[in-house]
Structure formats: C-alpha cells, structure tokens
C-alpha cells in the first residue's frame, strides 16, 4: 500500500463529516494544511478542478454552519441573561450568591482547601483502580475452590453499588471511631478517603468487568488453543484489551470521584467545600459556595474533555482497524 492510497481517502473522509459546525471547520482546515505541508503522496499529483470545487463547497458549508452555531449560541445566552436579570428576586439573589467582595475573600481559603480534594482524588484514585481491577478479576475466577471468593466479591459489589455515598461516609467517619479500636485511625480525612475507596472500587470493578466481558470469546479460545492456562490467557490476552477499552468510562468515574471528595467535608476535614462553609456561615452569604462549585467545575472540565477526546480517538482507530 502506498502512502498516497492511504492518505487521500482519509483527507476526503475527514472533510466529509458535516454535522458539528466547529469540528467541521477545524477538519476542513486540516485538509488544507495536509495539502500545503505535502503530507499527501509526492507523486506529482495535482488536485483536480472537481476536488477543489468540492472542497471549496465544503468550506463554504462549514463557514455557514459555524456562523449559525455562533448566532444561535449568542441568542440563547442573551435570552437566558434577560430572563434571570428580570426575575423578581434577582437583586436579593445577586447579593447573596454573586457578591464579588466575599468571592475575593473566600478564594484563597477555598483554594487552600482544594489541595486536600486533589490529594484525596489522587490517593483514592490509585487505590480504587487497583482494588476495582482486583475485584473484577476475582469475579471471573473459575473452579469450585473460588466459589466463596466469587460470592464475597459479588455481595461486596452489590452492597456498595446500592449504598448511598453519603451514608457510607457517615458510617465510616462516625461509626469507626465509636468502636474505639486501638490502632485504627479516627482521622475523618482518612476514614472519608476509605469510604470513597470502598464505594468507588465497586463502581470501577463493574466497569472493568464489562471490559473483560467485551473481549470476544474467540480471543480466549485462541489463547487457550496455544496452551495458555486460564490465568495466562487473562493476563496476556484478555486484560490488556479490556483495560484499553474501559479507559474512557474510567475517566468519567474519576471526574465524579473528584466531585465526591467534597463530601468528605461532612467529617470536618477542611477541604474546598468546608472552607466555603466556614466563610458562608460567618457572613450569611452564599457566594463562597458558588465559588467552590466553580472551582470544581474548572477542574473537571479538562478531565471530561480529555475523556471525550480519548474516546473519539479510540473510535477512529477502531474504524481504521476494519474487521478485527
């Protein structure tokens, strides 16, 4: 296969998608850049009049789509703004939720607290991935010896999938110290983190399990035919493919973990939410809450976009891969 045969349809195909205005404009530009940089086959090929005309048409359509999208976004924003500003309670709401003075005062405290949220997310995130994968693998074990293991894991996952996060947190943070066990921590931060790990491991193990089950049985059959044991087939053939497939949903779990670290504040650990609460209860102004919320959003948006990008990239790869 020459690179020319490869490159051309790809470029055409890219410009051919015309659903989303912004993406479309970007892709159309990409085609032009590819031509200019000479990444297309170097065989003296000159684009035909027909191709140039088609591309010009597509660029026109893309510009038009972008304009429509911008206009519609602007109109929606203006309508929402007018609706909110003209509502009867707006003045009071503005003072209690959108007070810049309080925002300025709260920002350093909230950011200081946010450090705790980030540490919790990273620490718990790593543990959750390890436990989640372990639970998923334990659940696939065969053989009568492992029956109790399978039953235990299944019960664990069922229990924590159903248990509301907040109740798990309360039980851990207040219940464990009440037991007065020697050598067991009473630190609400550690106990809160443990509650996050317990609950999210159950979620994540289900994600891993669906990944394991999505690997076609013929892959396992091929591995077993080569003489690999069940465990070897799992380790070398099934898991590597399964883990790759579940990366995007795992990232989504990470996003929601990041938010849920805020719940640990109910135990009294001073995270971003609790820092906001302290200031809010001093001044009876809710702006710090809103600020803390915004800070969380600013953190999660890049993660969500990254998950989207990764999913899109994997989908593209799969389509190129053809019938495997």
């Amino acid at each position: 296969m020459s690179p020319g045969v490869d490159g051309e349809p790809a470029a055409d195909g890219a410009a051919g998608t015309d659903n989303i205005a912004v993406a479309d404009a970007g892709l159309a530009k990409g085609t032009g850049a590819a031509l200019a940089k000479g990444t297309v086959a170097d065989d003296g090929y000159r684009p035909s009049e027909r191709r140039l005309a088609h591309e010009a048409y597509r660029r026109g359509r893309a510009r038009r789509s972008a304009l429509i999208a911008a206009a519609s976004t602007l109109a929606t924003a203006v309508a929402l703004y007018l609706l909110i500003v003209n509502s009867p309670g707006w003045e009071v709401t503005r003072r209690t939720f959108f007070n810049l003075d309080y925002a300025r005062q709260a920002l350093p405290e909230v950011l200081k607290g946010l450090r705790l949220n980030l540490e919790l997310m990273l620490g718990c995130g790593v543990l959750i991935m390890v436990f989640g994968l372990l639970l998923a693998v334990l659940r696939t074990l065969r053989g009568p010896v492992f029956l109790p293991v399978r039953l235990l894991v299944t019960a664990y996952v069922d229990f924590f999938l159903g248990l509301p996060m907040i109740i798990c947190l309360l039980v851990m943070i207040t219940g464990v110290p009440a037991l007065r066990l020697t050598g067991v921590t009473t630190d609400p931060l550690l106990l809160g983190g443990a509650a996050l790990v317990l609950t999210y491991s159950a979620y994540v193990s289900e994600v891993f399990r669906s990944g394991i089950e999505s690997v076609h049985p013929s892959q396992r059959a091929a591995a077993r035919s080569l003489g690999l044991t069940n465990a070897q087939a799992m380790r070398y053939v099934v898991l590597p493919q399964a883990v790759r497939r579940v990366v995007p949903p795992l990232l989504n779990n990470l996003v929601s973990l990041q938010k849920d670290t805020g719940l640990v504040s109910i135990g009294g650990a001073i995270d971003a939410v609790y820092a906001a609460k302290i200031i809010a209860s001093r001044s009876f102004n809710f702006t710090p809450y809103l600020l803390a919320g915004l800070v969380f959003i600013v953190l999660t948006v890049p993660l969500t976009r990254f998950a989207d990008w990764l999913t899109a990239r994997m989908n593209r790869r799969q389509f190129q891969g053809g019938a495997v």
Binding site: S218, Q219, A222, A223, R224, G227, T229, V237, P240, Q241
Partner: peptide
C-alpha cells in the same frame, strides 16, 4: 487440557490474532 493443547496447533477461520 493445557498439556494436550500445547501439542496441537489451531488456525481459525477468523484468524483470531491478538490485536494489542
């Protein structure tokens, strides 16, 4: 079973190569 399969080579209609 594993010892038996070690002595037999199989090729499938759908290749079943490991894509990763």
């Amino acid at each position: 079973e594993d010892a038996v399969r070690r002595r037999i080579g199989v090729v499938f209609q759908s290749y079943n190569l490991f894509p990763h």
